[in-house]
Design a protein around this nucleic acid. Sequence first.
RNA 1: GCACCGUUAGCUCAACUGGAUAGAGCGUUGGUCUACGGAACCAAAGGCUAGGGAUUCGAAUUCCUUACGGUGCACCA
Length: 555
Amino acid sequence: MDYRVYIAEKLNVDGIAASDIALPPNSEMGDYALPCFKLAKIFRKSPVQIAEELKNEFVCDSVISEVSAVNGYLNFKINKIGLAQNVISEILERGDNYGSSEEGKGKTVCIDYSSVNIAKPFHIGHLSTTVIGGALYKIYACLGYNVVGINHLGDYGTQFGKLICAYKKWGVKEEVQKGGIHAINALYVRFNEEADENMEAEAREYFRLIESGDKEANELFEWFKSLTLEYVKTIYDKLNITFDSYAGERFYTDKMQPVIDELKRKNLLKESEGAQIVDLEPYGMPPCLILRSDGASLYATRDLAAATYRKNTYDFYKCLYVVAYQQNLHFKQIFKVLELMGKPWAKDLVHVAYGMVSLEDGAMSTRKGKVVWLEDVISKCVEKAYSVIAEKNSALENKSEIAETVGLGAVIFGALYNNKIKDITFSYDKVLSFEGETSVYVQYTCARANSVIEKSGQKIQLPHGYMPNNAEFEVIKALALFPRTVRDAADKYEPSLIARYAVDLAQKFNKFYIECKILTESGDIKNFRLALTKSVHTTLKAALSLLGIGAPEKM
RNA sequence: GCACCGUUAGCUCAACUGGAUAGAGCGUUGGUCUACGGAACCAAAGGCUAGGGAUUCGAAUUCCUUACGGUGCACCA
């Protein structure tokens, strides 16, 4: 039940909607509140007076147990017994499905994320798009949407001509096969260091050969591509990330012309300095380049084709682009161009922008070797997790497996805990910290809850009419917030809300856990506390799972 | 130069989108050790929400302005 809706309906005052019902700063005041200041103008009375009058009119019932008027606020306390009963029984009943809904049924959401470049290994700069997109995928799926995860591969451009050129000059087949993506990347880096004008020209020619369908060039390219995909898939597996489509830039090679024709037909295309552009000056933006002066297409051209293709293929309700804010202008431009083309769905395109990652000593630079590879971060976290486990719980059987879950959780969680728009300075100290507001804390809490349940050795049975104490009630209120949090995270494209929620719930549970004994109690108290513990365990697991993080039963 | 984004405790960040006394974690100091899992819990200290104006019952949140930092601005992706 949504208490805000209930209260608003019960009040039945013009101008008061569920969204006007707020949460008081602390729970001693109440569980919900209505600020009456807005009503002062309508009723031409002081807010204090209005609150007082509304209080007197309000009849408490089985849902709202108490109303008070304080300084212009009307505070409500909800029936603790009823809330406890409702929330816990719902969680016990729905289990892993708690928080999920059908509200997105029949609607498709496309999410363009991660979008790796061929021949470039993953560094920590690629982590945000991957885990934010991955989490949004799970969050929307949880709300019943049909989700299409798209890895818009960076597989188009002269750099692949350079790569082939470098391979032809220095490459050894066996070494590349063995070294995989790092070997390819090394060739590319070497090209950029050593190439002269002749090689540059050669590279352009190789790119042309790829484009014109030359057999050898394409075979090489496909080989590099498959080595790249093989590599990234091992990382996606670890991060619990999946894709439904790997249609990258090249995929749109033959889908751009119709878009260009349409732009022409609609008189949007203009020549400027030899290039074909869409003029966006009236909208305060630089022009959107469609064709270079040599007739070649550009990034924007392919994105226009891709958006059109996705609409035609998936008929999306929304299409999200999880791409760093560096590309704010680019997306503003292509969204505007589609709008000018008269596409009503242009409004359904959303650039989900996130902040950039830098290192403590400045920006990353592949060329200067100032890079932190994602694989290294992962393995360090897993190693650390292993050593902590070995120290704290040496008897544990499957230590490596659990260390993997814990270590990867730390990597993912670290990238998801803050508002996505904020820049991040990467530090090993931070991801390797397993205390406080971390995934490890949440996982630990989960394991702790699980341990209590196991030790009890009894079936979970929620007693009727149990009156929760304060610590218990705080946990219950937090539990009740989960479905709303999932919806918020989807509405705001903000997985950090889930991460923060998980920590908050874990904190409240731990407080309860320290204050209230469970197994040494008996009867209703024990049964209720076990049911509460089980509910927390279920909800924390569900929250972590939306982020792609596992929750070991023991750790 | 223009545009967009950011600035909250020593550090890293929240604040349910305009509501009551701005909250957490880390770090610091002091406590809880018969532990249902101490990867935990409690307490203390720490704030003119970068500065200045405006809007109103009420501003960290909206508007203007200044400073600092970041990003982007025509044939790369």
